[in-house]
Amino acid sequence: MYNLKIDYAEGAHPAILDQLLQTNFIQQNGYGIDEYTIKAKAILREKMNKEDAELFFVSGGTQANLLVISFLLRPHEAVISANTGHIYANETGAIEATGHKVIPIESKDGKLTPTQIKQTLVTFQLRPHVVKPKVVYISNTTEIGSVYTERELQDLSVFCKAEGLLLFMDGARLGHALTAPKNDLSLVRIAELVDVFYIGATKNGALFGEAIVFPNPQMAVDFDYNLKQKGALFAKGRVLGIQFLALFEEDLYFKLAKEANEMAMKLAQAFEEKGYSFLVEPSSNQIFPILPVPLIQRLQEKFDFYVWKPINTEYAAVRIITSWTTDDLMLDVFISMLNE
């Protein structure tokens, strides 16, 4: 059974394992003040053109979302999310467990617009009887593979500033967003437009790890307390720092994400040539073709993937996801089964 269900089915890129091995017996300080972490942060600041940005390395995406949102919100405040957003649909109520409401917005493409958020704000005006929306949570790529354009992100940024809202971007698959065929954003531009974001590595070659970024250091004052209090400050912080150093020193991060996207586009083209449609337009390494149920069952004999959403009794949308290590020959087998 070949895995097209997740993009972290393997361990880590050999370059990361090599650096972990080569530095294994070199003594370093703990808690993220080792030389590797310091250097990795310097490289990321340079790539973002934000010399004073504050960065914090943590283990995973749910942890990053929990840490950031719980830090940004006062007790009576809430976060707005697309109904497909990870904090709403996939994190076991992690945000609610901190005492904060997640306000969902119905979204067909996984993205949010100022108009949608404005309509939501109108329904939360009965002060002090309702929570106060304060953070807007978006993902890039979204949970259904779509990608924000620069114009879309700029419009959100302007709107949020005007409304006194904070804009937070989940970047669990940010590498895939920034190397998507139609992408026109950059790390530099994202750092200019959002209040907080993170750079996900777990799903792009690392053993684990996300880099939380506060472009404005004033927003990160005392965040280290939150990190420690919630059990997210690694004693062996070097393990995270080394991974980001290996991924960004020579832009391996973007190379791996681009390879994953190219594998997905290969499959998307094959589906299109067979006349199949998609739940959302293929944009990155997650694609959602709508297939006949008998074909899905036949493909599942050799490939593992999610049946995402039933369309009717005859068709369903599935999620196919590719990674930096997806086997091109296995994709040829998959494509050949479309013709059987």
Rank of each mutant, 00 (worst) to 15 (best):
I199A: 01
P217I: 07
V194C: 06
T202I: 04
Y198R: 08
A220T: 11
P215V: 00
N216S: 13
G205I: 07
P215T: 02
A232M: 00
F214P: 09
G200V: 01
Q229F: 00
V194A: 06
N226Y: 12
G209F: 00
K203P: 06
K236H: 10
L233T: 07
V196P: 10
D195G: 09
V194F: 00
Y225E: 14
G205H: 11
I212L: 06
P217M: 04
E192Q: 15
A235W: 03
G209R: 05
I199K: 13
A235L: 06
A232H: 02
Q218G: 15
K230M: 12
V221C: 03
V221K: 15
P217Q: 12
G200A: 02
G231L: 05
F223L: 06
V194Y: 05
A220C: 07
F208S: 13
F223H: 11
A201E: 04
L227V: 07
V194N: 14
Y225Q: 12
K236C: 02
V196F: 00
I212F: 07
V213P: 14
D222V: 00
V213C: 11
V196Y: 03
F197S: 08
A211F: 04
G209E: 00
Y198Q: 03
T202H: 08
V194M: 02
N216L: 02
D222A: 04
F208R: 14
K203S: 12
L233W: 01
F208P: 04
Q229S: 10
A201V: 00
A235H: 06
F214D: 04
I212V: 09
F234W: 15
Q229Y: 03
G209Y: 01
K230Y: 09
D195C: 07
A211K: 13
L233S: 09
L193S: 11
A206P: 12
V221P: 04
K228I: 07
Y225F: 14
L233R: 04
Q218V: 10
F223W: 11
N216I: 03
N216Y: 05
Y198I: 02
Q229H: 11
E210N: 15
L207I: 14
M219P: 12
Q218D: 15
G205K: 13
A206M: 10
Q218P: 08
N226R: 13
V196Q: 06
F214R: 13
Y225S: 14
A220V: 05
P217T: 10
I212M: 09
I212E: 10
P217R: 14
L227E: 07
L233I: 01
G231M: 02
Q229C: 04
V221T: 15
L233H: 04
A206V: 07
F234R: 15
A235T: 08
L207W: 09
E192H: 14
D222S: 12
A206F: 01
F197H: 09
G209K: 01
T202Q: 11
T202W: 03
Q218S: 14
K230A: 02
A220K: 10
K228S: 13
D222W: 06
L207R: 09
V194K: 13
A235I: 06
N204D: 01
K230F: 05
E210S: 08
E192K: 15
F223A: 09
G209N: 07
T202D: 08
D195M: 03
G200D: 09
E210W: 00
A232S: 15
D224R: 15
Q218H: 13
A206Y: 01
F223N: 07
G200L: 02
I212D: 10
Y198S: 02
N226W: 14
